[in-house]
Every structure is written in structure tokens, then in C-alpha cells.
Design a protein around this nucleic acid. Structure first.
Lengths: 202, 202
DNA sequence: CGTTTCAGATACTATCGGTATCTGAGTGCC
DNA sequence: GGCACTCAGATACCGATAGTATCTGAAACG
């Protein structure tokens, strides 16, 4: 009865199940799309049945929220890393653009965010949750921009919050378009960023 | 048998049916959302049954494409109007921003575009159709920007095509975010436009 | 060791897009 | 002007899928 090396408690087992479901769901949602991936497929691919999903999440939407959270955590990590690795503005922008190209620039990321946002518009709870996350990311970005502007002694053409909103919008919009049409030039993102973040007295 | 005042041919009748379906679908898709509106509801609201939809459109996606086309036509009209009503750059930007606030700025417009794009990602035909439309709008916008830059004698910080891509992305991204969170500041759009369209030697 | 609890399985329901088939009013031919 | 034909639209059905209700067996506990 004691919990020895191989035995694990029910709580631990459930945590593992939950984690595995999020992992598999993330993979399937990113490759196949949110609506195009039946819940059963997620469950079976993870080695469970639908019941496992419903005893770990309120429904498909909550599962997807958990997936987004796991993605956001990685994204924030990546951004902070990109900025803290350099000190001068140009290198920082370069690092940011390079990071954006790899992660957010991957249309699948944005496509999932956007598809889910559209699908969840009618669920007040999920809408609130998404707005909460967007605001967090926006204020984080605004803080970063303000900090950098101060460090570099730049006077921005837009307020930090406006700049953050613009950057997020631009990223979302380009990602959405690129998820349909991969031929859209990514370098536009870099050019637009430089243009937006440029100092007033350029 | 002759076609008198009240009598109409089958072709005319069908054209009316089609038009009415698009009209009603547009209204419902914009207010309720694409996925959230069952085909039956569109048909019944228009005074028909599902059969009418399927004998006028290949399916729900084609119906929505027709809806988007009717919206795009109005949008292009509005843009051209906004620009041709003024001659100096500032008034033109003002008019454009004001138009954008009313039409594209309405989150429902963008929400439908984006939701449909996400939903239709798996249909190669629809994806192609959407890309075609996007490219048309982008090249139209780029042409307009180039023309204005030349008329005003401005040297742009971005190429016309880059500027057009940025503007579209920004509009789509902001619309998508605002469809969830109406508190997002619209004035950012105007500020970003001025910043993007600003001349190199500002 | 018997009882309780609960993670996950199974069986079922409702909804919706799409298909197959039918019907009846308009159309053309004699 | 009657008659066969066409085809817009109606009706009945199918399959997929999110969600619910119920069940089961093993872990937790006295």
C-alpha cells in the first residue's frame, strides 16, 4: 500500500495524464487545426479515451486553453532570452526578429491562436480567459519596450502601449495571412518593427 | 407563357434566391459567427430550406465566399471614395482612418474574415480563393500607396508592397484582437499608419 | 478486509454539414 | 394547348463529433 518507487498516487497519475493530454493536443492542434481535431483523436493518440479528457478538462475549449498556456510560457521565455542576450538596440531588434521568425513566425502558432479565438468568441468564459492572456502579454511587451527606450535614451514615436499593441497586431495579422499564403514576405515584419520602434527624431 | 410584368423566368428567380441567401447569410455570419450559424438557419431566415442553399452554392464555404465578396466590394468602394475625396496627404490619411474605423474597424468584419480563413484552411479550393482575394487587395493597396507617394513626392520608409502588407496585417490583427477585447485602443491604428507611411526623411 | 471514492471507460444523445431522392412549377416542342 | 422534360427547391436521411449519463475497477482508508 505504501508508495514505493514504481507505485504512484492517484493525484500523480492524473497529473501525468493531464500533461500527456496537453502535449498530444498541442501537437495535433498545431498540425491539424483546432476544429479539425476531434477530441477522441487526442484522447486515443495519448493512449486514453474521451472520458480521460472530460475528467481532466471542462471540455475541448479548456483543453485548448491549457495548450495555449504551454505555448505562451515558451514564447515568453524566448522573448526574454532574445532581449537579455544583447544590450544594444539593433542587436536586440535583430534577435527579436529572429526569434519571431522561428516561433510566432511559424504560421501554425498564430493560426491556432486565431482559430481558437474565433471559435471561442461565443463562450464568455473562454473569451475572458483569452483577453486576460492578451492583456498580460501586451503589458509585458509594453514594459519591455519602455525599459529599452529608457535604457537607449530613445524617444518613441508611439507610446509603449501603442507600440506593443501594434507589434502584437502585426504579428497576429501577418501570421494569420501567412497561414493561408506562405509566400508573404516575412521581412516585412522586421521592416515594420524598425519603422514603428524608430525614434521620433530619426 | 410570355414573360409579363409579374412573371419572371427561372433564371431570374434563382438569381433573386441567391442574392437573398447571401444577404441573410452575411447578416447572420456577421452577428452570430460563421461556425455558429447552421446552414438551415440561413435558409429558413431567407424563407427557404437547405435545398435552396445547395442548389445555389457548392456548400457552406462557397456561400461564405460569396458573402465575403459582397463585403469586399463595399470595402473597395469605400476606400476609393475616401481617397478620391481629398488631395493632400493628411486629409487622405484622416479619411482613410475614419473609413477604417467604421468598416474594417468593426470587429465583426475582421472576425468573420479571420474565422472563415481558419475554418477553411483545410479546403485547398477555398484557401486558394482567399489567397487570390488577399493578393488582389494587397496589390490594390500597394498601387494606391505608390500613387500617393508619387503625387506627394514622398520617399517611403517601406516599399509600397511592404507598406500594404503591413497595413493589411495590422488591420487584420487589430480586428481579431478587438473582436475579443473591445477595449483595445483604435487610435493605435491611426498612429501606426502615420508611423508606417511616414517619409524616410521625416 | 470491507467500504468508499474517483479516474477513466463506455454507451448514448443532439446538432449540423452534406447527400440522395423526390416534387411540382416553369419551359420548349409538336 | 396539351405533353414530356428540366431543374430549383423540399424532404428524408447519413456520418461525424461535442458533450452527458452511467458504469467499473483499482487505489485509498478505516
Amino acid at each position: 500500500m505504501t508508495v514505493d518507487g514504481t507505485r504512484i498516487t492517484r493525484a500523480e497519475r492524473q497529473a501525468q495524464t493531464r500533461e500527456r493530454l496537453v502535449e498530444v493536443a498541442r501537437d495535433l492542434f498545431l498540425t491539424e487545426g483546432y476544429a479539425a481535431t476531434p477530441l477522441d483523436r487526442v484522447a486515443v493518440a495519448a493512449g486514453f479515451s474521451k472520458g480521460a479528457v472530460y475528467s481532466n478538462f471542462a471540455g475541448k475549449e479548456e483543453l485548448c486553453l491549457a495548450v495555449l498556456d504551454s505555448m505562451h510560457a515558451e514564447q515568453i521565455e524566448g522573448i526574454v532570452e532574445a532581449f537579455s542576450a544583447h544590450t544594444d538596440l539593433d542587436s536586440r531588434i535583430d534577435a527579436f526578429v529572429e526569434w519571431a521568425r522561428r516561433s510566432v513566425g511559424n504560421p501554425r502558432y498564430t493560426a491556432l491562436e486565431v482559430e481558437f479565438a474565433a471559435a471561442a468568441r461565443h463562450s464568455p468564459f473562454v473569451a475572458r480567459e483569452l483577453v486576460k492572456r492578451h492583456r498580460e502579454m501586451r503589458s509585458m511587451a509594453a514594459g519591455l519596450i519602455a525599459q529599452i527606450a529608457e535604457e537607449e535614451g530613445i524617444e518613441l514615436a508611439l507610446t509603449p502601449d501603442q507600440a506593443a499593441t501594434s507589434l502584437l497586431s502585426l504579428g497576429i495579422g501577418m501570421g494569420a495571412m501567412r497561414s493561408l499564403d506562405a509566400s508573404i514576405d516575412v521581412s516585412v515584419f522586421a521592416a515594420a518593427i524598425r519603422s514603428l520602434v524608430r525614434a521620433k527624431n530619426s
